[in-house]
Amino acid sequence: MGTLTVVLADDHPVWRSGLRSDLSEDFAIIGEAANAVEAIDLITATEPDVVLCDLHMPGGGLAVVRSCADKTAIVMLTVSEAERDLLDAVAAGAVGYLSKSVTPSDLRDAIRTAASGEPVFSPGLAVLVLGEFRRITAGGHAPASITDREREVLQHVARGHTYKQVGSELFIAEKTVETHVRNILGKLHLTRREELARYAAEHDIT
């Protein structure tokens, strides 16, 4: 595999140039976009390995995920970790999210993980997902709930463990942890889609 190609999508030029200087040594930054429409065009034209995409740029990061998640690995970048949009983006197919306070070395690791097709599952995302499934289960209309083992995996990730550490804590292989994480994301995708459909049906009148 040659140098990984990366597209940066964020409406702040200063932020993009900061990212570029952090990443250009290890990755090929093949394009920058300042809004959702530009990003979608750019991704369609260049098919990068990884896209770093701001959640709140004009047009919304969610729109980029919705139309490009099947073409490339999209990692959301956000300043806020407590937003439902974030969960929507991940449920719509983003491979994960990173806080903008992430260190350059963690960012580089995350890009490599994303390019290899693995989810970038941060502790923060694990907590969000745990909360989401708790909410769904409490609401009584769960199209898919997570298993006890999957919840354990999430709790370990939330505590800051790497997949390898989670594996040795639970006496399972690192690969098995990855499978659990993929299954959890699949279930999240399913429940969010059902919820959106139900929401649309319930709010038809307004």
Binding site: H12, V14, G18, H56, V79
Partner: peptide
Amino acid sequence: LHDGVLQTLAIFQRQ
């Protein structure tokens, strides 16, 4: 605040 101030602060911390 998320869109503006925190974003600017994130840039600041990085640059």
